[in-house]
Design a protein around this nucleic acid. Structure first.
Lengths: 271, 271
DNA sequence: TATAACTGTATCGCCTGTCGATACAAGCTA
DNA sequence: TAGCTTGTATCGACAGGCGATACAGTTATA
């Protein structure tokens, strides 16, 4: 069965994990965020009791937290009054995140340039353990709704950016990621077999970029190059994505690998 | 003195307002969000004590909340270890907001189309009382970093989108917005005088769109058209923004008003 | 139409988890 | 060295969150 990109169930980094174990665990704060995290696994507005269930919080507690979050603007009622949805004030915080992230600030002009030259979709994603989180998105011609959303995340294991990142990590860490990753495929071309992934990473190490063909979206070819921080650690990746109706994979790589590599190099801060 | 677009101090809807008055006020939850809101007014990483001050929370409380938020990924340490910055997990929540917002979902394909035809920057912003919050951004040629950020907000009073929205509101509400708005100008062309704003709104009512020239950014002309919900209430606006080095204001309006209006109409859900 | 299963809202008392005060170690600047 | 930060840790008192419980309004099923 194919995995649904749309749903939030990448299963990566479950918000509830690792919280109870913290000795300095703070209940109320964590509970508030748990309530907000209830929306990760849904596609439609949630009722109060649905929020309680999804977040593993009692009805009473959920009620109070939701009420507070609503008055603060972090939760809203659905247009049709049918349930609750996340509120617009959440955008203020992600805005702060993007604004204050020096990597993103440095990357943006480079990406704008890259998109102008490439004329294909250009993305910048951040390495966050098992997933890559899209932080900058520059659409080209025809895109889907979900290809425009900042905050969308995809597995490190089977995306061009993730492979590019892994190609810059020491083997121990790569193995750790492979071991802990969810192996459910997106399409029937998704490569999740450990040995095959290792080969792909070796290939990326040699070429300096990673190429994925229809591993996440049917008909799509994507090229990823890692972006490095000081001390050479990969922090994220640049992607260029195109359509197989216009490119063969090798032609795509030949055309865009130099552009993407140059762009990544302009962002890097290795000393 | 000119107002700084970059800083978060649009002064609009202070997060701390109206909280203490709520009878069902929940301390801990609100406090967590207050701590996160501390980053709204800064351009650089914050120390623990700076967070405490900015959020009006005691040092001890701030410490615990920050610690929890950090283990949950909502706050991170700066690259250079000099202070705290918002964490990547915030993007998950804004992603939920964008995903679950049916208006944005409906608007996105229309905006992609519009950008393809217009070949200028196209934005979609949501009406949130005194401010308009950018929810979808489609860059064109040369853009600044801040013109790419989702979550950025600008005053309803002096932006093309805001004026377009106000032109669809009853006079009482318009007056209310004018009265409560911050009048600090962005440039020396920013119109904030109540009477002048009223005239601009009247003009927008007649034309069906609003045009602003250098009111927020020097050298920029922007055209806004309101997007309406059922019952005809304005929910947001489409913007097209161009450079005065390429367009006269009237030529810009003549060219793009029909395109933008058509796009807005395609999104509207008036019954 | 009656019944059942939902919605969100409200109240209240026990007990838990939070906050403030206070102290300390580690890193910078002078 | 002294004097300033920075972040971390401990602990007791008491505010305030949580669970249990109940109710009113709306939608679904018999």
């Amino acid at each position: 069965m194919l995995r649904n990109i749309v749903s939030g169930e990448n299963g990566i980094r479950d918000p509830d994990d690792g919280v109870r174990e913290d000795p300095l665990f703070v209940q109320a704060v964590a509970r508030a965020m748990q309530v907000l995290s209830a929306f990760h696994r849904t596609q439609r507005p949630l009722s109060l009791t649905a929020i309680a269930e999804a977040s593993g919080v009692g009805r009473s507690a959920a009620q109070r937290v939701v009420h507070t979050l609503q008055t603060l603007g972090y939760i809203e009622r659905d247009e049709d009054g049918r349930g609750y949805i996340p509120g617009i004030r959440l955008l203020d915080h992600s805005h702060d995140y993007l604004r204050l992230n020096s990597l993103i600030e440095r990357a943006t002009p480079v990406l704008l340039d890259l998109r102008r030259n490439a004329r294909e979709r250009v993305d910048f994603s951040l390495f966050d353990d098992l997933r890559m989180v899209y932080a900058v998105r520059m659409q080209s011609k025809r895109e889907t709704f979900f290809a425009t959303l900042v905050g969308h995340s995809v597995p490190t294991l089977c995306t061009s950016g993730g492979r590019a990142v892994m190609s810059r990590l020491p083997d121990v860490e790569v193995e750790d990621i492979i071991a802990r990753s969810d192996r459910r495929p997106f399409t029937d071309k998704t490569i999740t077999d450990p040995q095959e992934v290792r080969e792909k990473i070796a290939e990326a190490r040699q070429l300096g970029y990673a190429l994925t063909v229809e591993e996440v979206l049917v008909g799509e070819v994507a090229l990823g190059v890692a972006v490095l921080g000081p001390n050479g650690r990969p922090l994220g990746a640049i992607h260029i994505a195109g359509s197989l109706s216009e490119w063969t994979p090798s032609a795509f790589a030949e055309r865009f690998a130099p552009l993407a590599s140059e762009a990544a190099h302009a962002i890097n801060r290795v000393r």
